[in-house]
Design a protein around this nucleic acid. Structure first.
Lengths: 334, 334
DNA sequence: CTGAAAGCGCTTACAG
DNA sequence: CTGAAAGCGCTTACAG
């Protein structure tokens, strides 16, 4: 239905070959007369010609497109990652296909398959699978892959992560040593997820290092899919049976936000507790009196993931060997 | 390099045609023997076959992919839109290509061209162009298009927007009539943008309807690209010369956020002013004493835009005529 | 200086 | 019941 090279060639009485060379900028290299080149370009413009990238990619074997699979796009952390990944990819001439796995491992697998079908040149993925079974996970050989935000020890892939355990250890350690906390509640979700497990682990390490026993009754865990409903109830119950709590450690910003909301709604003074959180809303810091935050390097994570992926893609296209890159970035404590 | 239909056909000693029919689920329809079908499927699995969507799309003339172009992906409003667009598209079997125009009209045009090259079946776009020159804008005939968040009167396209003027008029009217404001500051950015212009207009209408003169000195405008630097300075200057201000109307959530930050940093009591804002961070409502908010129906906007686009795409494929859909959704005042 | 031809990997109308 | 063949729109090695 559209205008193709053939139409231009026919109209000008020359071959498709010549037209293709001119339009792909190889006119001079192929010694095509300036006059012919001009005629081709004029005709392309006149017919409003637009290259069919499908045909081009089918021939060339690459699409200059990468895929990004995240649990969600609206969450501020992932939105920042997506934004940066898109910008960096674009700047290198790559387009971005994006999809949300909805925190669902099956959906994720389906999306990987779909992206492979669509012939993306590579995939960046915040993996949701719980198992580390590399055989089942993915056809590694089909497409270059970079994990972001999470990684599995047993899997041979490139990844860009932060050190969840050490970052949360530092936060909780500060609460204890600098803020004088002794009874710090752990507010977390989906503890089976690798990231959350690391953060719980850092919390416990900080306690133990400071000679404080781990008290399971200070742990409050909800489901990420329904935390808005669960958390207020859980907090209510928690507070009524733990009146000696002096601090809250949140393993993720959404739990901090929801808790602040709850406190405000209930008229509970938020200055009464020391708090620390993995990430935050940019200006909660200004409103919550005692809040320690670990800021995630989202921009750097996105950038690094794209860089690694493009390197992998390009060395693969050249037939060069590839070594996976394993990157752990630091959080800042402002 | 990959495994193709040909490889399966060769290995099984049958034709590509048969293989294609089986794998595309037309085996029974084509009366292919159950045994052959089984052999084909087994072989495909064994060779780890994956369909080449490029070839398929080239043949069929569609890609089952739509494009989304937004000024930014990290902004919470656009992130919510992107999230919903992706989910709804996915649920209908479409993939999503996304890109950020960086609030830049030239970049936007380049992206449209790129998406057309990549043969997306349709595009959803929050347009940045200032002119309404439809000829220059886009090749409307090349691809179905839906505008989101903004629209140009003169352009014949489908769009999904909110009523910026009336929504802001209601907010400011409430500030005056219910909160008793008489000196409401307008805090806005990039006033040449259609959305911002509508919101300014609503603000002025509310004032005039309540018999209040428009005072240009109460208007505070910054640039979206650099508001984080500009706004604090502008506010400082503004407050020092307008001590009778009793309310602030923010044309967008980012300005509200930045202002609250500024107030907190400066130790200014935020309870001193009445405020109203087009959108907000979800829990600022709990922390700011006098805040009226117009909540945007982001989910509905994203969903509606996809629905219209897919309808357009599908009626186009069937060769049916198409009428543009013009949708204006309502904000909620909670 | 320019072109005919093969090939990328599919789908499907047509033929037997 | 199955297959040979054309075609989607490009690119490029090969030929002249």
């Amino acid at each position: 239905m559209g205008v193709s090279l053939k139409d231009i060639a026919a109209k000008l009485g020359i071959s498709k070959t010549t037209v293709s060379w001119v339009l792909s900028g190889q006119g001079d290299k192929r010694n095509i007369s300036t006059e012919t080149q001009e005629r081709v370009r004029a005709c392309a413009k006149e017919l409003n010609y637009s290259l069919n990238g499908l045909a081009r990619s089918l021939n060339l074997g690459y699409t200059k497109t990468i895929g990004l699979i995240l649990p969600s796009i609206s969450d501020s952390f992932y939105a920042n990652i997506a934004n940066r990944v898109g910008l960096v990819a674009n700047a290198s001439g790559y387009s971005l296909m994006i999809a949300s796995s909805k925190y669902n491992a099956d959906k994720e697998e389906e999306l990987i398959r779909l992206f492979v079908e669509k012939q993306v040149d590579g995939i960046i993925l915040a993996p949701m699978k719980l198992t580390q079974d590399s055989q089942e996970y993915i056809q590694f050989d089909k497409v270059p892959l970079v994990f972001i935000d999470r990684n599995y020890e047993d899997l041979e892939t490139s990844y860009v992560i932060i050190d969840n355990k050490d970052t949360s250890r530092i936060l909780v350690d500060n609460m204890i040593r600098l803020d004088g906390c002794r009874r710090v509640a752990l507010v977390t979700c989906d503890p089976h997820m690798l990231t959350m497990d690391g953060r719980r682990c850092g919390y416990e390490t900080a306690l133990l290092e400071n000679g404080i026993d781990i008290d399971p009754s200070l742990c409050l865990s909800v489901h990420i899919a329904s935390y808005k409903d669960e958390l207020p109830e859980a907090l209510e119950k928690f507070l009524s049976s733990n009146d000696d709590v002096d601090g809250f450690f949140f393993t993720t910003h959404i739990l901090l936000e929801e808790t602040i909301k709850f406190f405000c709604t209930k008229g509970i003074d938020i200055g009464r507790y020391k708090m620390a959180s993995m990430r935050t809303n940019p200006f909660l810091e200004f409103m919550v009196p005692y809040l320690r935050v670990a800021h995630f390097p989202e921009n750097e994570m996105g950038k690094k993931a794209v860089e690694i992926l493009l390197n992998h893609i390009e060395s693969r296209q050249k037939g060069e060997p590839w070594r996976n890159q394993e990157v752990t970035l630091n959080c800042s404590f402002q």
